[in-house]
Simulated assay, not measured.
Amino acid sequence: MLRTLAKTLLVTFGIDSAHADDFESLSRQAASEAPRYALGVGYAKTGEPPVTMTFGPIHKDTSRPVTADAQWHIGSITKSFTAALVMRFVDRQILSLDEPIEAYLPTDKGQMHSHWRELTLRQLLSHTSGLQANAPMADFSKRSDENLHSLRRAVLAPLWTSPLPNPSDAYLYSNLGYVLAGFIVEEVSGRSWEELVLEELASPLGLNSLGFGAPSEEGAPWGHRDLFLFKRKISPQGEITDNPPWLGPAGTIHLNLKDLLRWGQAQIAACKGEPNSLLSAASCQEMRKVVAENYGLGWVIETDKEAPYIWHNGSNSMWYAKLVILTEHDLVLVAATNVFDAKGIDELVDKLRLTNPVTDQSD
């Protein structure tokens, strides 16, 4: 199955046939997973409709195929949405990346330790705030989806009264930092992060499949959770299928592959300064600047390669997805599966990325 996919991509991308052996090798490595789990792959060139392919069943115990327009949980790729949302408010001069966040939290700053008051959105979005990775585990039992702004405050408030555990500008990946960034946007707008994502990002781009939590629509893949040495399918009805909704700004978005590719195309358009783009060119390019390690604002930036690219991956441990933007080729690649298979998906995407994905037709 994956061998057929590889051959299809070779023809579609116009990839040199000398690289066919690389694709076939990848096919052999990933073939053992393909019959039991769903796989989605896609690409989009600038100005062209996205192309996607889906394979496998909706879960391991059925032969029912995943649908072509199925929605996939994208985990922390959500962070690129939250960062872009912040930058929309930066473009309007409502927010500043480098203003202490106390300026945006008049109701709460009196209870905040000075370490927290002095944080900036740039630090939150680049994982250089010193915040811990996650809230205490007890907060993950708070699963209400009503008044999420108040629930996010309830998660954050007991923490921001104390000094930061790691007060420095060093890189430390923090879901909690993104929850706080989302909370700030809610405070200045008076709308929930979920409403803002739909109104400010999804609607202008026509991302009609975008939603929150695990996908539950007909034909969507079910997630699979590790249970000792086995993978157990997780029904979208009656089981815990995702992290709690308050974690939204850090990673609860789902959408279909075409819309995920359109999201990547929108980043290309904005950074080129195309008219009616989601962001100003300056804000888009700011997101691609490395702040610490190889992380910018909502994107991982690979600068030490012959062909630079930006990317993000995501998982709630039951799905795994990866989005890559080849900045020199104006090409977006995505791959997703409904089981935590970071190695398999990363290898697939890297092979596609490294196999000269755009044929030069300038002659």
Rank of each mutant, 00 (worst) to 15 (best):
R36A: 12
R143D: 05
D22V: 11
A20F: 04
F55W: 11
R117M: 08
I101D: 00
Y104M: 06
G130Q: 06
F81M: 05
R3V: 11
I58L: 10
D139G: 02
I77H: 01
T52Q: 09
A68P: 09
D108F: 15
E102R: 13
A18L: 13
M87Q: 11
T120R: 07
L97H: 01
V51K: 11
V51W: 06
S126R: 03
E33R: 10
A138D: 14
A31T: 03
Y104H: 05
A30C: 13
T67P: 03
L9N: 00
H113I: 06
L9W: 07
M53K: 12
L124K: 01
K79L: 07
T52E: 08
F23I: 00
A18W: 12
A68R: 15
D61I: 06
S80L: 07
K45I: 07
I94L: 14
Y104T: 01
L85E: 02
D21C: 09
D108H: 14
R92M: 12
H115G: 11
T46D: 14
Y104Q: 05
S27A: 15
M53S: 11
S126C: 02
A6Y: 12
Y37M: 07
V41Q: 02
I101H: 02
S27Q: 05
I58H: 02
L39C: 07
M112H: 04
V41I: 11
K7P: 00
V86E: 04
G14Q: 03
A18V: 11
S27M: 09
T4R: 14
T128D: 06
F23V: 00
T8S: 11
P106T: 02
A38E: 05
D21Q: 15
M112K: 02
E99H: 11
A68D: 14
G14K: 05
T62N: 11
I77S: 01
I101W: 00
Q132W: 10
R143Q: 08
D61Y: 13
Q93V: 09
G47Y: 12
T62M: 13
P50M: 04
K60F: 08
E33L: 15
D139E: 15
S80T: 08
D98I: 04
T82E: 06
E24C: 04
T62V: 14
D61H: 12
K142V: 13
A20Q: 12
T120W: 08
H73V: 02
T4F: 14
R122H: 09
E118Y: 05
M87D: 03
M137D: 10
A30I: 13
V66G: 02
F140Q: 00
R117Q: 13
A135R: 08
D98V: 09
D22F: 15
S80V: 04
